[in-house]
């Protein structure tokens, strides 16, 4: 901070020494006018934490995490690991893996049992990765209660980073607004 301040003073002195007082005045003007204006645009009544505050959808009282353990390349063996934890005691918990057939899973991809509060259960299944194509694996943890069912899910993509699936390309309408437009089924009646 002190270093930056010294650099600023040096810059100002250099401008004066080179007879460019007008540039110094312009610089100061920009600093004094533009910066406060920009601050006003950021709703000064909002505390900084307000900017970071997101109010999230409630988690179910069960959580799930799906991971791929091991190297991912064509022909390799990898382990799919689905881990679940419950916030409340749950007598009937089921772990499910939805594995593409091409991944040639070795074992039955489900587990069922009970979990105490904070306890963890895991389901691990070895798969063979056949090629370099992308394969999406989805895991779910389902806890059944007398009057409720809690679900947590996770997913991983084998051979690729996550990429959103794309629909139609974004275009601009006649007012220059970006739109993402789909065709509608159309029925016409002339009268």
């Amino acid at each position: 901070m002190a270093f930056a301040g010294m650099r600023a003073v040096d810059y100002c002195l250099a401008l004066l020494q080179h007879g460019r007082a007008w540039m110094l005045a312009a610089t100061l003007g920009i600093v004094l006018c533009v910066v406060p204006a920009m601050c006003l645009l950021v709703r000064p009544e909002m505390p900084s934490e307000e900017l970071a505050r997101g109010i999230w959808k409630a988690d179910q009282p069960i959580s799930a995490r799906l991971e791929v353990l091991g190297e991912q390349f064509p022909g390799s063996r990898a382990t799919l690991s689905l881990t679940a934890t419950t916030d409340v005691p749950a007598d009937d918990v089921e772990l499910l893996l939805d594995i593409p057939k091409a991944l040639a899973a070795d074992e039955i991809s489900s587990w069922r049992g009970s979990l105490g509060k904070g306890e963890q259960a895991s389901l691990q299944v070895d798969v063979t990765i056949p090629d370099g194509a992308q394969y999406e694996v989805r895991g779910a943890a389902v806890a059944r209660f007398p009057h409720a069912k809690a679900v947590a899910v996770d997913e991983v993509m084998i051979n690729a980073a996550r990429t959103p699936r794309r629909g139609p390309l974004v275009r601009l309408n006649s007012r220059g607004e970006p739109i993402i437009e789909f065709p509608a089924k159309t029925k016409v009646r002339h009268r």
């Binding site: 993402i180 789909f182 509608a184 002339h190």
Partner: peptide, 26 residues
Amino acid sequence: ERATYAVVSSPVYADTNGKTDIDMDI
């Protein structure tokens, strides 16, 4: 991208002096 979702009908050859019904199903 902040693109607004929209749907558009098929092009319809219509009499702009008259009345035309164009229904859309999404």
